[in-house]
């Protein structure tokens, strides 16, 4: 579904992503794990078109999306839920969701809205509330809901557990699992490696811009090196 081949991304002269290749198959949850600064978010931003990829290729459903404007990538069915949630704080919950359906026809967006409210009853309760007044967990739900509004076939989630209480982290991951079961392919970037690997099918471990190992999630969970480095022994 998504095929990333040997991409290099730079911030000015800093070589942040060094020749990374990975792929995501339909129906999978794939996770990229690694420490701060390993290049996880950079990779997602490059796939979403927010960052320029200097060399390499990115293919989504057989089509190259390298150099495509971000708004066009969204309409191809590849949505991203950005790091730090990035909701529109001044808008109401419903307005935020409506923005998420921006690339779709009104009717389709209305249907998406109903689906999102079905999945997140909490958001429906708070639909009129200003998004900035939501709790962290609700904001994360809103950010995921907003990304779902474009009905993506592949959803990229950048650090969905960031800054959330453990109980909320569990909730968010349960939602991710549910989303996947209902047919959305997911590419997940996480610092909470244990959580990410527990829901994922496959994982890639990143270190300073390179992939150092890749395997099925259960293998990585039991891998000694990975355990030591990312799972706290």
């Amino acid at each position: 579904m998504l095929k990333v081949n040997d991409i290099n991304v730079y911030y000015g002269s800093i070589h942040a992503v060094k020749g990374i290749s990975f792929d995501v198959n339909k129906g999978e949850i794939v996770t990229l794990i690694g420490a701060n600064g390993a290049g996880k978010s950079t990779i997602l931003n490059s796939v979403a078109g927010l960052l320029k990829t200097r060399t390499g290729s990115i293919e989504f459903e057989g089509q190259s999306i390298l150099g495509t404007a971000p708004h066009l990538i969204v309409s191809k069915g590849l949505a991203m839920c950005p790091e730090g949630r990035r909701i529109f704080l001044q808008m109401s919950v419903e307005e935020n969701l409506e923005m998420g359906g921006y690339t779709r026809k009104n009717q389709e967006a209305e249907q998406s809205l109903i689906n999102v409210y079905d999945r997140f009853p909490r958001l429906k309760e708070r639909r009129k509330q200003q998004a900035g007044t939501l709790s962290g967990g609700e904001q994360q739900m809103l950010a995921i809901g907003r990304a779902l509004m474009s009905r993506p076939s592949l959803l990229m989630l950048d650090e969905p557990s960031m800054g959330l209480a453990p109980i909320l982290v569990d909730q968010i991951f349960a939602i991710i699992k549910e989303l996947n079961e209902s047919g959305t392919t997911i590419l997940l970037v996480e610092q909470n490696a244990r959580m990410a690997l527990s829901v994922a099918d496959r994982g890639y471990v990143l270190e300073t811009g390179r992939i150092v190992s890749s395997a099925s999630a259960s293998v990585l969970l039991n891998d000694d090196a990975v355990r030591k480095a990312y799972l706290g022994g």
Partner: peptide, 14 residues
């Protein structure tokens, strides 16, 4: 939306 949050606006397809 572009004013309030550029990255979010981009990521919803604006």
């Amino acid at each position: 939306a572009v004013r309030d949050n550029r990255i979010a606006a981009e990521s919803v397809g604006i």
